[in-house]
Design a protein around this nucleic acid. Structure first.
Lengths: 191, 191, 191, 191
DNA sequence: AATGAATGAGCTTTCATTCAT
DNA sequence: GATGAATGAAAGCTCATTCAT
């Protein structure tokens, strides 16, 4: 594995710093410093600062596709399946989670970022619907399935978003259980 | 109705601009301009820029208390009750919704803001639990009730947060239905 | 002893703060705060900030007069006498020493302060000449006496000035010995 | 002699302005203007204003070393030798005299400057001791030599300091005579 | 292709001074 | 006589961006 080229090093540095400190709070000079490249090179590859963020979104925030569900769905266990999907989404690529945090924060200020967020939400909903479909052994009404998926996606995004905000993280596994019940999973013995 | 004093005008201006453009992206000079006061006056009342935000949080973001549930809960209709609660929280005071958006975005960058966000989440969870309690006519396990409440709070916060991000808003009413089902509401005729 | 009036309290506060932090680095607001008076009152009594300093010099930096030599001169012991004089100058009024430090620093920037410094030096020289006169039992040439006095005054001022600058203080007692030798004091047994 | 580079021009301008008006009273903008460079360039080379002063001290205030005594000491004439040394210290490099004035004034306010002042005093004392050693043809007690040196250094520093304060300069040549007498120079015929 | 010196607009903040009451 | 809200000029500093080399 050769040393990453300098363009890649710049993107690596930007990804980490944007996630940690925020886009606005990160001077391009610090990106260059963290990437150990001359300052001019950053602007050679990315003429405007926003291009750093845009490139990150395009190259490093792939739309999650249904194939990541392979192996994580346990038929008959929707709650466990949703949780496993969430884990796969987040753990497979920790930085992309951070990047999602960034787009949340910047989507208001930088219109170019919005469509990425919209699309991310849309494909997460589709992914979750697919996961539910594969996990339940009974039939779920189309509308309910959509609502359940959207609910879980909100929790996942809130989780990602709250991650940096610090403090009590929302309980994803609880939400998985709630959603599973809603789509008809058998109610466990009272606890 | 007397003209609001100048300190109030400054806070009004800051609230609107912070919500619209973000805290960091709003120069104090523009706050002064929007409030139609000289630049120096902003710093007379709020020595540091962050004090503007902090004051906004303290004076304008009251912790939601259980009494706002009065009159919105319909016993036997948890979904409708949650939705009504959400409407009351958000619509009664449109600006506070914007303010919540702000603290979401700034809580990562400005540590002083975090505790406000944490506390907001905590009291929203308690409020939602109380709403569920009053709305259901049967018994809900303590753990499930908490999970259901946290799920709905995530959706509400995600909704507030996504508001500015633009695009598809998460469907709060769907989430209310999902949560209601999870706590045992009767399943409607299939759709 | 009645509580000092407010004008006095302002001067007290200014004296301490100017000596400790410097004239330029002390905002009038902090003077008011330290004096526990409203900010407007400072400017009521002292229309310009510099008037605070000027008043301090006029009212609190009395020209040292020969009468302070009374009781400190030991005839036949010029070194001891100079040292005692220095002690009397400094200890009698500790704040005035600090004030001298201030005028040193400000005399360059504020022309009004210069004449005070000049006059201080002049009267110190005269005082030291008088002290030498009274302390020696033999005749000292007029020119030498003047040179000896100026030398000792330089050391005293350097001492006052270095006081705040921190670090190794010049050795006033050594200078007293040197000056005494120069005007003919008997050389001690070799050491 | 090529035109000095812009960094040098900035330091030149700062040196003159700091000496003339004081560090605090000199805006960086005026330094830039005097150096005929854009304002941003000052901060490009010297990120904080204090770095201008610190750099000046490091690059332009060399510790005086014993070799500057070469050729100025006249054996048998300590007074003349001290005076020549003083002249060499001050006149050889007029700007460094101004710089010394600056550090005197700023050493109270800017702690980073103190050590420079301490070190300057220390090495001046050592230099003066060496000068006395080489100038006298007889033996001087170690303690007396140190006291004599410190006395003369105080006079030199007071002289440098008083320079800007305006008005009567202390008489360095008189002090040289006094110190010479103290260390045993033959007393001239009465004057 | 690559660089780093250079730039200037714009930011937050400070504070002596004014003045209506 | 007293006051404290009000003001605005000016300060130090940041930084995206440009461009000669």
């Amino acid at each position: 594995m050769a040393a990453p080229d300098r363009r890649t090093r710049i993107l690596d540095a930007a990804e980490g710093l944007f996630a940690a400190d925020g886009f606005d709070a990160t001077p391009t000079a610090r990106v260059a410093e963290a990437a150990d490249v001359p300052k001019g090179l950053v602007f050679y590859y990315f003429p405007r600062k926003i291009d750093l963020l845009l490139t990150l979104l395009q190259e490093r925030l792939p739309t999650p596709t249904p194939d990541i569900l392979a192996g994580v769905i346990r038929r008959g266990d929707p709650a466990g399946s949703l949780l496993a999907m969430h884990r796969r989404l987040g753990l497979e690529d920790h930085d992309s989670l951070m990047l999602r945090t960034v787009i949340f924060r910047e989507s208001g200020t930088h219109p170019e970022v919005r469509s990425h967020l919209r699309q991310l939400r849309r494909s997460l909903v589709e992914l979750t619907e697919a996961a539910l479909d594969q996990a339940v052994e009974w039939t779920v009404a189309r509308t309910l399935r959509r609502q359940a998926a959207e609910t879980f996606v909100s929790v996942m995004l809130d989780h990602a978003n709250a991650h940096r905000a610090g403090g009590a993280l929302p309980d994803v596994s609880g939400a998985a259980a709630v959603v599973a019940l809603a789509v008809g999973a058998p109610r466990p013995a009272s606890g």
